[in-house]
Design a protein around this nucleic acid. Structure first.
Length: 940
RNA sequence: GGGCGUGUAGCUCAGCGGGAGAGCGUUCCGUUCACACCGGAAAGGUCACAGGUUCAAUCCCUGUCACGCCCACCA
């Protein structure tokens, strides 16, 4: 006997164990003979992570697809694993060291630190897998991978070396986004533009040798032409970053700018440092912005860098890696300095932070009378997405991937339709980004990650090979003498010491961007570069399920790498789902304190309820605002089904393998069988087309409203009545329908349904062929429903009587008589068949027939039949009059609307015949009804 | 500055060219023996606004307003 309520907390762990023991999620489990593979690779969560709502949604949707396909007999692999998450993980461990007052990373040294991270991973890295497991994610856990495990690391080496050999990875000295807190380069994508209220300082840069020009100072209001000029011996430039002026190596003006074009080629003397810098003509300078002249600092601004390249300007870096002024011992800076009264003041700023330097420089300029103006200025300032500090464009040597070349096939694959985005509008976003893609900076100055397989030797030699041994071999071949690998400092010292008997090499100290290994995930997890059977079988994958926030970071890069190394797009479909927000639509974040922990919800309502909620709300193209009340509602749904099963059990409804739904004879049975088939079709269609909300909604409303509210209620008199063939049939049908519901619901609510699958079989003394997770999906014939007319009439009758009772204030408990007027043979038959059900559900005492409606009765119009409740004194006749009048008004309005259409010649002429016909029928029906209601009202 | 998306019942959301829907909430009724995590009944909406296309528009087009989000180098 089932308990009165379903106890998710008790059942879920037990069911999870059951699946494990059955090996239900192993690749290929339950696959039919000759089945096509169905593969999903999980978006690997960070090892440092714990499950948030986004993961819960993401993995619920994947699990729905995977469980569905597994039941349909496909050869399913859901590949799980985690990502090593370079910066994030390194931060976590460094923080732990600090908390425990242990020596920091630098004090420990690289090897010890990396060892420490592995220890951390072993102890704490399993959190998220456990949480996914609790969610019911049916991954093949036996195949779990980690982006830094041996196999995946081999794939990374293979790819890096190959791309380098092909010239698609190269080392370059250019500006990068430098994070002065983490002391590493980051990619464009890791930079967040943040709006900042700053200032725009206008500086005067004096012209060299007393040169002058005519600067317009007044303009005609209409034409905008200058009307007044003054003679100036300086140029005004504006900047949001005054401290960078120390690195200025030019002033740019537009080549056609009449104000300045004669100055091109002349020089200004950079105040404070005395450097002579050229005035160059460059299109980059916009005559309409500010003064039309712009200071150029090639080493600290991406645009200026380009200008610098065009004009062969010096690149003077004036910051150190922590973004402090770097002046003393800075040869490039000191090389150009001249005689300036403030030079000593500037040098005194050496080593101070960039923001302090900014104030100091402004103060010095102001003191010199060279500060022309200060404007308030709102602009976008780049910040590190993880560190939160202002990013510094910084001149360094880094490794780059030639993304532009790799992007071409990736764009083509989507254009050709080899890979389709769902919803399709994301393709636009993908194209937009891919078509404007920049070189991808893949080196990071961190310790945790895949160390770059490059070894440096003397004279600029670089060996990019898969191992140290290969590097040594290559160096020996090139230099003709023994080589050995030493530390960077040692190697450099050896090279400076001149030629020796051996060649010293050192390995690049940097690691790769985490997304580099993630980009290989769809094939590296399957064993690539080895030609494994799994790779042959499960690649390319069927669908990638992910949020739009990582289309660029991840999806695009997997497309590029997948196509380059396997010649196949890594996924057939990319399903992009929405973000989960809080009830009010705000993004969940720790700082806002509005984070809902999925595990809390699972504890409270069960994993099934959470999963169902997420699936039911996952309509395409809209963010999910998650209200915990919703989860509670779906928990109630789980209980509802549980109780329906309990009711069935109490009434001897036993599952049987012998039952064939095609052979049922009773109308109620026929009706529910067909409705079940329709529901199965709707759920199947919903999941196949990624309309999870439709699929979830279809099982929900069928189970609750069709099956529980009507079928079971109508079946009760029979099920609880005399034994006989009719009862036996309904018992069998009921058990069968529950089985179908349980199957259809399984992708959404796997725990509850698996439990019911076992318990109902136990009760019926039936031995199931397999766990529900591996049981074939319902494939039911969908046909017209011959019983629908009868059942719909019945439902209508009962609903109407209930409504009238309620509106005319008949006491709920009162058993009342009913008189039918004008019933046809068919309708009499309906009443006869379902008399017990009608009496029970509408609280009716007797059902009689008459030629005319009794006096003072409430009346319900049901087609040609008038159903009378002749209860003077019980029925509130005023209420009844009001009710009928209200219905009459509504009918009149309907008819008026329909007439408006039918009286419009264009409508009759141009609308499709069936539409016109439909309107005619509707009018006729409404008219007939109006007459009946009018009569009824008259009788009162 | 470009692009995308969203404005439908009190709230959260479906629907999307021909009869306005769900869940939650609200109101009223109910100890009917599966379920009060329940049952029954009801109230509640010029489908943001303005034009246009169409026989017909919540749905398609254009514009406006509001709110999100993404991308972008304007000193």
């Amino acid at each position: 006997m089932l308990d009165k309520t379903y106890d998710a907390a008790a059942v879920e762990p037990r069911i999870a164990t059951l699946w494990d023991e059955a090996g239900a999620f192993r690749a290929g489990a339950g696959a039919r003979e000759g089945a096509e593979p169905f593969t999903i690779v999980i978006p690997p969560p960070n090892v440092t992570g714990s499950l948030h709502m986004g993961h819960a949604l993401n993995n619920t949707l994947q699990d729905v697809l995977v469980r569905f396909q597994r039941m349909r007999g496909r050869d399913v692999l859901w590949q799980p694993g985690t990502d090593h998450a370079g910066i994030a993980t390194q931060m976590v461990v460094e923080r732990q060291l600090a908390e425990r007052q242990e020596p920091d990373r630098r004090a420990m040294g690289r090897d010890a630190f990396v060892e420490r991270v592995w220890t951390w991973k072993a102890e704490s890295g399993g959190t998220i897998q456990n949480q996914l497991y609790r969610l019911g994610a049916s991954c093949d856990w036996s195949r779990e991978r980690f982006t830094m495990d041996e196999g995946l690391s081999a794939a990374v080496l293979e790819v890096f070396v190959a791309l380098h050999r092909e010239g698609l990875i190269y080392r370059d000295k250019r500006l990068v986004n430098w994070d002065p807190r983490f002391l590493t380069a980051i990619s464009d994508l890791e930079v967040q533009q943040v709006e900042v209220k700053g200032k725009l300082w206008h500086f005067r840069y004096p012209l060299e040798g007393g040169a002058t020009y005519q600067a317009p100072i007044a303009f005609d209001e209409e034409t905008g032409e200058p009307t007044e000029f003054e003679t100036r011996d300086y140029i005004v430039v504006a900047t949001t970053r005054p401290e960078t002026m120390l690195g200025d190596t030019a002033v740019a003006v537009h080549p056609e700018d009449p104000r300045y074009k004669d100055l091109i080629g002349k020089h200004v003397v950079l105040p404070l440092v005395g450097r002579r810098i050229e005035i160059v003509g460059d299109d980059y300078a916009d005559p309409d912005t500010g003064s039309g002249a712009v200071k150029i600092t090639p080493a600290h601004d991406f645009n200026d860098f380009e200008v610098g390249r065009r004009h062969d300007l010096a690149m003077i870096n004036i910051l150190d890696e922590e973004a402090r002024l770097f002046l003393e011992g800075n040869d490039a800076f000191l090389a150009g300095v001249g005689d300036d009264e403030n030079f000593a003041d500037v040098m005194a700023l050496n080593g101070i932070d960039r923001f302090k330097a900014r104030e100091a420089i402004v103060a010095l300029m102001e003191a010199r009378g060279l500060l022309a103006e200060i404007e308030n200025h709102v602009h976008m300032v780049p910040h590190g997405d993880r560190s939160g500090v202002v990013i510094e464009p910084f001149l360094t040597d880094q490794w780059y991937v030639d993304a532009k070349t790799l992007a071409k096939p990736a764009i083509e694959a989507v254009k050709r339709g080899d890979t389709a985005f769902v919803p399709g509008n994301w393709e636009r976003v993908y194209f937009e980004w891919m078509e404007n893609i920049q070189p991808w900076c893949v080196s990071r100055q961190l310790w945790w990650g895949h160390q770059i397989p490059a070894w440096y030797g003397p004279d600029g030699a670089v060996f990019v090979v898969k191992s140290e041994a290969d590097a040594v071999k290559a160096a020996e071949t090139q230099f003709g003498k023994p080589a050995n690998v030493v530390s960077k400092t040692e190697a450099v010292a050896t090279w400076e010491g001149g030629a020796g008997n051996t060649v010293a090499l050192y390995r690049d100290e940097d690691v790769l961007d985490t997304w580099f290994s993630s980009a290989l995930w769809p094939f590296s997890t399957l064993g690539w570069p080895d030609k494994t059977p799994e790779l042959a079988r499960y690649y390319p994958t069927s669908v990638l399920v992910t949020g739009f926030d990582i289309i660029f970071f991840w999806v695009a890069r997997m497309m590029m790498m997948g196509l380059h190394f396997t010649d196949q797009a890594p996924f057939h479909t990319v399903y992009i789902h929405a973000l989960v927000r809080d009830e009010k639509g705000a993004k969940m974040s720790k700082s806002k304190g509005n984070v809902i922990d999925p595990i809390d919800l699972i504890d409270q309502f069960g994993a099934d309820a959470l999963r169902f909620t997420l699936a039911a709300m996952a309509a395409q193209g809209r963010d999910i605002k998650l209200a915990p009340a919703r989860v509670q509602g779906y928990r109630n749904f789980a209980t509802k089904l549980w109780n329906a099963a309990r009711f069935a059990e109490m009434n001897g409804c036993k599952q049987s393998t012998a039952f064939d739904p095609a052979n049922v004879t009773g109308t109620l049975a026929q009706w529910i069988v067909v409705e079940t088939g329709r529901t199965a079709a709707a759920v199947t269609e919903g999941i196949e087309s990624y309309r999870f909300n439709d699929a979830a909604g279809a099982v929900y409303s069928f189970t609750w409203h069709t099956f529980c509210d009507w079928y079971l209620e109508l079946a009760k008199p029979v099920l609880q009545g005399e034994d006989g063939p009719a009862k036996a049939e309904l018992q069998a049908v009921t058990a069968w329908v529950i089985d179908q519901i349980v199957k259809l619901l399984h992708p959404f609510m796997p725990f509850l349904t698996e439990e019911l699958w076992a318990r109902t079989a136990e009760e019926a003394g039936l031995s199931r062929e397999s766990v529900l997770a591996l049981t074939p999906w319902p494939e039911l014939a969908v046909s017209d429903n011959p019983a629908a007319r009868e059942i719909n009439w019945l439902v209508d009758l009962i609903s109407q009587i209930r409504s009238v009772r309620s509106e005319t204030n008949v006491p709920a408990g009162a058993q009342i008589p009913v008189v039918l007027v004008g019933a046809s043979e068919t309708e009499r038959g309906y009443v006869a068949t379902h008399e017990a059900a009608i009496k029970r559900l509408a609280r009716v005492e007797t059902i009689e027939e008459a030629d005319n409606a009794p006096d003072k009765s409430a009346q319900v119009i049901l087609g040609d039949v008038t159903v009378c409740l002749p209860l003077a004194g019980v029925v509130d006749l005023d209420a009844e009059r009001a009710r009928l009048q209200k219905e009459l008004d509504k009918l009149a309005a309907d008819i008026k609307k329909i007439d408006a259409k039918l009286n419009n010649p264009s409508f009759v002429e141009k609308a499709p015949d069936e539409v016109v016909e439909e309107q005619r029928e509707r009018r006729e029906e409404a008219e007939g009804r109006r007459n009946k209601v009018t009569e009824a009202l008259g009788r009162l």
